[in-house]
């Protein structure tokens, strides 16, 4: 048992870097990433797993970090938007978002990119249908989505 209020040591690999932290049982992964690790890319918006702004990948799986206990990530690899690029080289999905004009206010962007990354890991060249299926839980209020879908399809090498 881990007592209420007690801090549990956890080890995780965040964006390729091993981290050791002590977190409370009730600490949410989103807050740990943002506040303890200063990774502010993931955003809190709906706070109810509908919008996708807080999406990060835990062992490759997209999760809502706003509704995910940090202790669950113990022993896992966590990927956030800050870990998508390799140095100054953007990941193809980032490049595609820039080129397609798929970014406006940017508040949904991290979640969109990580959702797209998970999709591309599963289907290297996703169809438009597959993209729409994956984006069922990813909201954007600025772009009207057309350029986001276009960017993801393009990142997979599909038609623009």
């Amino acid at each position: 048992m881990i007592d209420a209020g007690a801090r549990v040591p956890i080890r995780l690999v965040v964006n390729g870097r091993a981290r050791e932290l002590a977190v409370a049982t009730h600490a949410l992964l989103l807050d740990v990433l943002r506040d303890d690790l200063d990774l502010k890319g993931a955003k809190r918006s709906c706070d109810s797993q509908v919008c996708g702004a807080c999406t990060v990948l835990v062992d490759g799986l997209a999760v809502s970090a706003c509704t995910y206990l940090a202790v669950e990530a113990d022993g896992c690899a966590v990927l956030t938007v800050e870990g998508l690029a390799e140095g100054d080289t953007l990941h193809p999905i980032q490049r595609a978002f820039v080129d397609a004009g798929a970014v406006q206010c940017g508040f949904c962007t991290a979640g969109m990119l990580l959702t797209a990354r998970a999709l591309l890991d599963e289907h290297a060249a996703p169809t438009r249908e597959q993209v729409l299926h994956y984006l069922r839980g990813s909201l954007c209020r600025c772009t009207g989505y057309r350029k986001i879908v276009e960017a993801i399809v393009a990142a997979g090498g599909g038609d623009r």
């Binding site: 996708g52 799986l61 997209a62 809502s64 995910y68 839980g137």
Partner: peptide, 11 residues
């Protein structure tokens, strides 16, 4: 495959 969204299904 169609329950909620991909993040909810993963967890």
């Amino acid at each position: 495959r169609h329950v909620a969204n991909v993040r909810v299904r993963n967890v």
